[in-house]
Design a protein around this nucleic acid. Structure first.
Lengths: 236, 236
DNA sequence: GCAAACTTCTGGTCTATACCAATCAGCCAG
DNA sequence: CTGGCTGATTGGTATAGACCAGAAGTTTGC
């Protein structure tokens, strides 16, 4: 094979990680020892590590080092099962941190819901974890008339559950958009990753069964932490 | 701002590209002149370019240089409108190249369709273009009983159209899986991009209205060339 | 007039080295 | 035992220079 050295390195690292995952407890050795071990420079080593990062095998957090990525979370954005149920059903531990609660305008949400640009929303920003790893940040923009006093009540529970139980909203129609992205500096910081880390942006506009707008949802996921899965029946 | 220089560079390049897109006709100047212009090294410049690549603003092809990426294709993997219709409806020019026609086993397809591992399939591999840019490669694995002589007939047209018109199959149930990935060396080569380029892997298992397996589909897209969009109604 | 051969340009890869800032582990004082 | 300080470690960033192989453009030769 006349492949580039960093590609060979990628393969060697892959098997090395595979073999030593248990004893390393999820964290790779430091870059300098690793580079020395393979008789190369950190630059080339990092190129190889970045490959594995792109595949979703490893990731880095802050400046703390390289970590082995857990299995992807299987996620169906078309269903309204709550995040918590989802994660637990896959034998993982969910957690949510509320970052912000405020009332504000947000033209992108307004447009997606067919409302005027100056429409105010109740804005909830939260960060979600799986097994103590932050995997996404999201902003929820809820139409105030549909859920009065939401901001006073909300404390991290399932929003869709709340909408259903307290205000009797059934989320019937939704329009979903998914785009790969590079995380913005803000999103990256809130997820403790480097700016520009690969991410997946999922936006949802949700209406009730009478086509009334309920909420707009902007999610920013780490690219390696989810596997989108949709089951459909009926001809389309 | 105390940001890293390469992040400032990213911003400067962004505006530079924005202003000169027309006169450059989609192709950026070579790396060396660009690096000199910003009084830095190619290494740092490439770091900035890679950021913009991650955002989907620019891409590179082969060793020919950096190019400005066109708008993303809006794509609904749950509908069975053909690729050609799709692309044309968005004012773009579709094209398909057939890379391979053969009969072979493929355990992943078999498993997804609930068939034994040694089940043979009719395998079609094709590359698809939008406005002469290769944006995806895909492998289709069709159950032979459902479409006899497919390999003799097939010449690049819409497969789903063929299945419907010639064999009367209505594709009723499907299970779709989407995962971000790094393109494999093979996929990367067929798309004329560097190995490990960011991609999006979309797999579909498709059944008819009697739950009989029809085909399995593995698509590998360039990450910057599509925007997934799904419209749903009815509670789920 | 056209195809083959050659040259130049360009991105892809790699080495060696250096400095900074965040992190972490260990020490020390209260 | 706790909280703050400190120094070593580590990832992130950057410079400077080099070589290779593929792509593109130009010249040559029939």
């Amino acid at each position: 094979m006349s492949d580039a050295y960093y590609l060979q390195l990628t393969e060697q690292l892959r098997t090395l990680i595979d073999q030593n995952a248990a004893q390393w407890k999820g964290k790779l050795p430091a870059e300098r020892p690793l580079a020395e071990r393979f008789a190369t420079t950190r630059v080339t080593l990092r190129q190889a590590l970045s490959q594995l990062e792109g595949e979703g095998l490893i990731h880095r957090s802050n400046r703390r080092g390289w970590f082995i990525s857990p299995a992807r979370l299987i996620y169906d954005p078309t269903r309204d099962a709550g995040f918590n149920d989802y994660v637990r059903a896959q034998g993982r531990q969910p957690r949510t941190a509320v970052l912000k609660l405020e009332s504000r305008v947000h033209p992108p949400a307004a447009r997606a819901l067919g409302l005027p640009d100056d429409q105010p929303f109740q804005h909830i920003r939260r960060r979600r974890y799986v097994d103590d790893r932050a995997v996404l940040v999201e902003s929820l923009w809820v139409v105030p008339e549909r859920a009065p006093e939401l901001l006073d009540i909300y404390a991290g529970q399932s929003l869709w559950g709340l909408l259903r139980e307290r205000w009797g909203h059934y989320l019937a129609n939704r329009s979903i958009r998914m785009v790969s992205e590079a995380l913005s500096p803000l999103d990256a910081e809130e997820l403790s990753v480097a700016p520009g880390t690969a991410g997946l942006n999922i936006n949802r506009a949700i209406f009730d069964d009478q086509q009334r707008p309920i909420e707009y949802d902007e999610e920013h996921w780490l690219h390696d932490s989810l596997c989108i899965s949709v089951e459909l029946s009926g001809q389309r």
